[in-house]
Design a binder for these strands. Structure first.
Length: 459
RNA sequence: GGCCGGAUGGCAGAGUGGUGAUGCAGCGGACUGCAAAUCCGCGAACGUCGGUUCAAUUCCGGCUCCGGCCUCCA
């Protein structure tokens, strides 16, 4: 089995072969740091984290670049509204982003470049584009001239005629062609700006990714990923800029995760179904959010529902129950079970991988001797590792409580009640035993009597 | 208007040219002081109309419905 990925560029599943046999380069579009990450932002983070883990197992070295966009008009607007300095907003938002996605078990990328630290590279690239006749200055702006590129539109499969016919936005008078897009734009004194051959200004949206991908991965690299909504114009324009400036192919494989909906509707602030990752983390463990996201193939639209999250939690409850009940066997690092690995290598088929997780769970629950139990448990843990779940101690999983939940009973009180119930049971006072069980249940504690004694968990 | 996805059992969600997804829910059983957990078993699907084929949920075409994109939203 070898890695197969669906390439948006060719609209086909293709066997993945990296440019260099021992080193894979991957670029994924990261957040614009003006506000909390929402669940739509979380999907690519989680999906490409699974890919990053997979690539890291298949190849000796993987360079995973995910940018931070810290210059943007939404950030400027936020600063204007709040009166806070831009640097404060972007630093704080970046930190919150890191905290949120760490809770989703997303590994940090190899390199996380910030746009504002790469202005010189962007200016250099724009200069090349101007020199080669692919860009022109007009009224303080520098625009990419799409007419100068013969095969513009190859990724999104749009022709210039279609785009002109479908244009819904008023076209700036300084554009030669309605499809031309901004590489550089002038900044008034109150806006962030950098000196450039075209005066003080700031970069357009697309150029940062072209510049930073080139800086860290080279002109041509293996994988470029992001949300499907970025196919056009963002990724199309990255291709145009990079290929025209470099005279070399850009990313070879393009991966795009599907859209995210909420309860069957498009997520939007006006519909009131807009959730930040933080809000979700207050009501569910990050691992449950992650598993929920992975229960649909990345290429499909994902419908975020309360029911789906509940199911993901229930699945993790079952998995952690089995892990807790088998905690006495030796932990040993083993290979990812072949079926799970094969599912992931087939264009990241995480739902199928999760189905195999259930089979591994069944094997663990049915294991009769310690050797079988240890083998099943280690296999399950290895499979979880591949998906970025089952990473914590089962006891911790069952202690999880929503933020702001009533404090309820502490662990010592729970232990005391369990002990009292045990005494009652020993003396056949089942009425008392059941009363204690009921008391605990009213405090959200569920008891399980097992061969190794009584365990508890928060419902 | 142009372009792109999707439609699978009560729900979620893979996959496949010809018997089984998987999970949740439901039903029956084992186990348990009672439970929970676990195990065993059961029922249940491929939007619609045509075409190709010995055979289509799977390939092709029409239709219906749903979702999205069309210059800065992952």
């Amino acid at each position: 089995m070898a890695l197969v990925l669906y390439n948006t560029l060719t609209r086909k599943k293709e066997a993945f072969t990296p440019l260099r046999p021992d080193h894979v380069g991957m670029y994924v579009c990261g957040p614009t740091v003006y506000d909390r990450a929402h669940i739509g932002n979380a999907r690519p983070v989680i999906v490409f984290d699974v890919l990053y883990r997979l690539l890291s197992r298949l190849y000796p070295q993987v360079t995973y670049v995910r940018n931070i966009t810290d210059v943007d008009d939404k950030i400027n607007q936020r600063a204007k509204d709040s009166g806070e300095p831009i640097a404060v907003i972007t630093a704080r938002t970046t930190q919150m982003f890191h905290d949120d996605i760490a809770a989703l078990n997303a590994l940090p990328p190899t390199i996380e470049p910030r746009a504002t630290a790469h202005i010189a590279q962007m200016i250099a690239m724009i200069e090349v584009l101007v020199a080669k006749g692919h860009a022109y200055a007009a009224e303080g702006h520098v625009l990419f001239e799409v007419g100068s590129m013969a095969d513009y539109g190859q990724l999104s499969r749009r022709s210039m005629d279609e785009m002109i016919a479908g244009a819904r936005v008023e076209i700036a008078p300084y554009k030669k062609n309605p499809g031309d897009f901004v590489l550089w734009k002038p900044s008034s004194p109150d806006l962030p700006g950098w000196d450039s051959p075209w005066g003080r200004g700031r970069p357009g949206w697309h150029i940062e990714c072209s510049a930073m991908a080139g800086e860290y991965l080279g002109q041509t690299f293996d994988i470029h990923g992001g949300g499907q909504d970025l196919v056009f114009p963002h990724h199309e324009n990255e291709i145009a800029q990079s290929q025209c400036a470099n005279g070399a192919p850009f990313a070879r494989t393009w991966l795009h995760n599907g859209y995210l909906m909420v309860e069957g509707e498009k997520m939007s602030k006006s519909l009131g179904n807009f959730f930040t990752v933080r809000e979700l983390l207050e009501n569910a463990p990050g691992e449950a959010i992650r598993l929920c996201m992975l229960s649909t193939h990345y290429h499909q639209p994902f419908d975020w529902t309360a029911e789906g999250l509940k199911q993901a939690r229930a699945t993790l409850d079952r998995l952690y129950t089995a892990l807790r009940n088998s905690a006495d066997v030796a932990v040993q690092a083993v290979d990812i079970p072949a079926a799970v690995q094969a599912a992931l290598e087939d264009d990241l088929n995480t739902p199928l991988a999760i189905a195999h997780l259930h089979e591994l769970l069944g094997a663990l629950n049915k294991a009769e001797d310690d050797a079988a139990k240890a083998a099943a448990r280690n296999a399950l843990l290895a499979a979880g590792q591949a998906l970025g779940v089952l990473l914590q101690d089962p006891r911790e999983w069952f202690k999880w409580q929503a933020d702001g939940a009533a404090a309820g009973l502490d662990e010592a009180e729970i232990a005391a009640l369990i002990d009292a119930r045990l005494q009652a049971r020993k003396s056949k006072n089942f009425a008392e035993a059941d009363r204690i069980r009921q008391q605990l249940a009213e405090n959200g504690i569920v008891l399980e009597d097992g061969p190794q004694g009584t365990t508890w968990k928060r419902a």
